[in-house]
Design a protein around this nucleic acid. Structure first.
Lengths: 119, 119
DNA sequence: TCAACATATGAATAATTGTTCATATGTTGA
DNA sequence: TCAACATATGAACAATTATTCATATGTTGA
């Protein structure tokens, strides 16, 4: 029994080719981790709502907070996460910081999600 | 000041139209919640790896556990979540339960995620 | 019917995370 | 330069969650 067989059913030999194929095609841990991190960002309804707000148009933090009826601090914390994932960008305009969608993967990913839950 | 203005910057009047537009276009809470729940499922690297395994072909729980070098119990718990989100389906074949991808939104969503992180 | 196998599941634990509160940073107009 | 405004951020708390361990459920062949 190989050290890799943490757990193993009796078909391990019969299905060894499947296991090998999966190993061969599985992306690197780094990539898997990054992917999961990206989807985690979409996995919070506050952040989803921020993205929906920005679908309409770019906005200052304050307008997002108003639109979502949440505190400025809560929004600011979430915007930081959205920015780190490069889902939104920002620029300063005087006292305000304007946030906007970084690209349209955001829209595509959310649309696919909607497709799925609406089936 | 409206009861809806939990927090408000001084441009609340100037930007009131933006806030209204966001309100108008924002999906229902139920939908937002479901969306976030769906993406949460993608937000775990174990579940992502299970999905990548199933991209190759349908498999019994045991083969997934072998492929990912994880315990049967851990995989089983995660498969339950994937099934609840209708991302995978299963059927019994004798003693084994065969899991498979439910549809190809899964692939599309993950591909979009990959596109994003690889830019 | 029973032993062996495959999978599911409940409880417990450790780790992660969203919001709040208080406060810091940075900008503007007077 | 300073007060008012807009945003960011660190610490703390509550809530959620992934894995482990032990065990239950369900299937098969003898």
């Amino acid at each position: 029994m190989s050290v890799n067989d943490v757990e193993h059913c009796d078909v391990v030999h019969k299905h060894a080719d499947v296991v090998l194929k999966v190993h061969r095609e599985m992306p690197d841990d780094d990539k898997l981790y990054d992917l999961a991190e990206l989807f985690k960002v979409f996995g919070d309804s506050t952040r989803i709502r921020i993205l929906f707000a920005l679908f309409e148009e770019e906005m200052c933090v304050c307008d997002i907070a108003d639109s979502l009826n949440m505190t400025q601090s809560a929004i600011s914390h979430q915007l930081k996460i959205l920015k780190q994932s490069k889902l939104v960008g920002n620029r300063r305009e005087g006292k305000q910081i304007i946030y906007f969608l970084a690209d349209d993967h955001v829209r595509t990913i959310i649309d696919q999600g909607i497709n799925h839950i609406e089936e």
